[in-house]
Amino acid sequence: MASQGTKRSYEQMETDGERQNATEIRASVGKMIDGIGRFYIQMCTELKLSDYEGRLIQNSLTIERMVLSAFDERRNKYLEEHPSAGKDPKKTGGPIYKRVDRKWMRELVLYDKEEIRRIWRQANNGDDATAGLTHMMIWHSNLNDTTYQRTRALVRTGMDPRMCSLMQGSTLPRRSGAAGAAVKGVGTMVMELIRMIKRGINDRNFWRGENGRKTRSAYERMCNILKGKFQTAAQRAMMDQVRESRNPGNAEIEDLIFLARSALILRGSVAHKSCLPACVYGPAVASGYDFEKEGYSLVGIDPFKLLQNSQVYSLIRPNENPAHKSQLVWMACNSAAFEDLRVLSFIRGTKVSPRGKLSTRGVQIASNENMDAMESSTLELRSRYWAIRTRSGGNTNQQRASAGQISVQPAFSVQRNLPFDKPTIMAAFTGNTEGRTSDMRAEIIRMMEGAKPEEMSFQGRGVFELSDERAANPIVPSFDMSNEGSYFFGDNAEEYDN
């Protein structure tokens, strides 16, 4: 993207840094990872977990959730003011799984939030270390993106479920800051804005008074975040219109849905970061690795190297396929839920299948599930090659597409044709070009129609051997075009429920 120079890199967003050079960025990201790792080690000690239990991804998720809940100030305040039966607002906890007599047992633990905050700050040299908290939120978000298709949420806001490739980060909490905003897809931002506008339509006082002023500035800020994701002048001009509207209503909703559809071809720039579970960072720190000293990046080879040398386990339900569970977590670790499966298959070195073909449910185990038949197995999170994460949407291309997802959002900077089903997408653009945004709409449609099938995206960008740390010898991959490109292809993934 041309304006790259004016933006802070995501590592800076990730670490609240002012302008830093590459070495400083690597050190501050490393410091953040160190903090998460030290916190995780301490929690495993508190909970008396064995090494194996500490490497269980379900335990990692519970521990991450506990610290996120302990620092969720708004919710904590709300819980104190609106006490609900049987919930102690000062405590947080969740299921911890232990191996007892050759069987997995679930144990519900409860801790004072104050105590968890103390352990977290102690692991982070006394700081609140917001960057580390956001990092864990993005890992949870990436896992949700890989596990669930947001059909219901899309339909509720009037969008087409086939636009799911635009929904990265749709389950990120509001408090995820600049680093969170960077990884949100165009569809996620559109959905947040539509929800806001709908509230304004239904509630006369939404934009009024002292609160209304705050609401208005939040609305304009979200519009600017979305505008910054678009790469064409016409899309940005249309966002200006939406932002400046005196009284946002149905016309703005129409414009936003139009823009979301246009992003299936004229893709937005959305950041991709490899955020790993805390149970990967903990053992690495415990083994003596100093992330701050060595430096770390979320968008280069580092996460690949770390996963190459990590042992992570997962509980497996009786009829689940461990290899499929591994694929789910591998995609989440690489922030690749909406990437082209052919690119992923090449990088991973084994075939990556669409969601609907995987015999696996989510990673988390519900409290009512029976533990008797639970097994555990090693997650295979290694890769054959590594590639640089991208934040450009890439230019655009036609490809055989599917009944489910009709476009992709690249996660890796790797040369390819970008699949999208042009006739299906263009069919949504018939007729409606009147109104105050008509010239911009016409211009956007013209650009979409001009998108050429034979153009290559990320020209000359390749993948790298894991021994090639400096990215000196790019390998331009070859793809098996007979395979499906979309992950949520004609899909039956479970729906995400809060």
Rank of each mutant, 00 (worst) to 15 (best):
I444K: 09
T232L: 02
V186F: 03
R400N: 12
M481R: 15
M374A: 04
L143G: 08
P83E: 02
S467D: 01
L341W: 12
I116A: 01
S69V: 06
D497K: 02
L264R: 07
M105P: 07
P354G: 15
F412L: 15
N250P: 12
R246F: 07
Y40E: 10
A332L: 05
V312D: 10
N432M: 00
V463I: 06
M189L: 03
C223D: 12
P322L: 14
K325C: 11
I201Y: 11
I201H: 05
S314F: 09
E14V: 12
Q327M: 12
E434F: 09
H272D: 03
M448P: 03
L108D: 10
A401N: 00
W386H: 08
E454H: 02
N76Q: 04
A442Y: 01
A471V: 14
V270R: 10
P89S: 01
T433K: 00
E484T: 03
A411R: 00
E369L: 02
L133G: 02
E18W: 06
R342D: 15
T6P: 03
E454Q: 01
D255C: 11
A260V: 02
R441Y: 05
D101W: 09
A260K: 10
E292N: 13
L341H: 08
K357E: 15
M447S: 01
R342H: 07
R391I: 09
M374F: 10
M159I: 05
I365V: 08
A233V: 08
P322Y: 01
V312E: 08
E24N: 00
G295E: 05
R446A: 01
E24M: 00
T378H: 01
V363G: 03
T151H: 10
F71L: 03
K113A: 10
A373N: 01
G169S: 07
R117M: 02
W330T: 03
W104V: 10
G86N: 09
V242C: 15
T23S: 05
R436P: 10
S262G: 02
I347N: 13
M136A: 03
N124A: 05
D203Q: 07
I138N: 02
V408C: 02
C333S: 02
R208V: 12
I36D: 00
D16M: 10
P303I: 07
R243G: 03
S376A: 00
M331P: 01
N202Q: 01
